[in-house]
Simulated assay, not measured.
Amino acid sequence: MTASPPEKPGTDWDRLQKMSDEDIDTSDIPDPTPEQFARAAARRGLEPPPRKQQVTMRIDADVLEWFRAGGEGYQSRINALLRAYMEAHKKS
């Protein structure tokens, strides 16, 4: 009796093509951060976003603390969320 040759390493493309979307395990993919969500649209060829402008605004203390707890870049994350909200609510 002869031993079977070991399977070749790599992707089993035939098996993958036969899978449905429901068969794919995506449980290890983390949810996108608000900043990643806001930047999800490709901007190539589009006008650059407007320059940032310094403003003073009042934000609930617990909301601000939550963003600050996320570390450096909290102001950019707040801006990204505001931009995503603005884009989602623009009139067509």
Rank of each mutant, 00 (worst) to 15 (best):
N79M: 01
S20P: 00
R77V: 05
D60W: 03
A69P: 00
P50Y: 05
L64R: 11
M19P: 04
D21W: 13
A41C: 08
E47V: 07
Q54F: 06
E35Y: 09
L64Q: 06
E65W: 02
D62L: 09
M86Q: 06
F67M: 10
K52E: 06
L16C: 07
A3V: 10
A3H: 12
E87Q: 02
L64K: 15
L64M: 12
D62P: 00
P48G: 07
T26A: 14
E7F: 04
R77C: 01
S4C: 03
Y74A: 04
A84E: 07
R83I: 05
P32L: 05
Q36W: 01
S76N: 15
S27G: 10
G70V: 09
A3G: 12
E72F: 11
G71S: 09
A42G: 08
L82K: 12
R68A: 06
S20A: 14
S92Q: 08
T26F: 13
E7L: 12
N79F: 01
A88F: 00
F37M: 11
W66S: 01
I78L: 10
A3T: 14
P9T: 15
T56S: 15
E47S: 02
G10P: 00
P6L: 12
T56E: 09
R68H: 13
V55E: 06
T11M: 07
L81T: 12
T11F: 09
D62E: 13
W66F: 11
I78W: 03
Y74C: 03
P5Q: 15
T2G: 11
W66E: 01
H89W: 08
W13E: 01
S27F: 05
L82V: 14
F67H: 10
Q75E: 15
S76W: 02
S76E: 15
P9M: 13
P32M: 12
D12I: 03
G71C: 11
P6F: 06
A69V: 01
W13P: 00
Q36F: 01
I24W: 12
E87C: 01
D12E: 05
D28V: 10
K18H: 04
D12H: 02
Q54Y: 06
P49G: 09
G70W: 08
S20F: 12
L46D: 11
T26D: 14
R68S: 06
M19S: 13
K18D: 09
F67C: 10
R43Y: 05
G45D: 02
R15L: 04
M1S: 10
F67A: 12
R39T: 08
P5V: 14
A61Q: 13
P48H: 09
I78K: 00
Y85G: 04
P5D: 14
T33G: 07
S27W: 04
K52I: 07
G71R: 12
P5W: 10
Q36D: 07
Q17Y: 00
M19Q: 07
R15S: 07
D21T: 05
A69Y: 02
S20I: 04
N79W: 02
Q17G: 05
P49F: 12
F67W: 13
T33A: 07
E72Y: 13
L81H: 03
I29T: 14
P30V: 06
I29Y: 10
A80S: 15
D12F: 02
A61L: 03
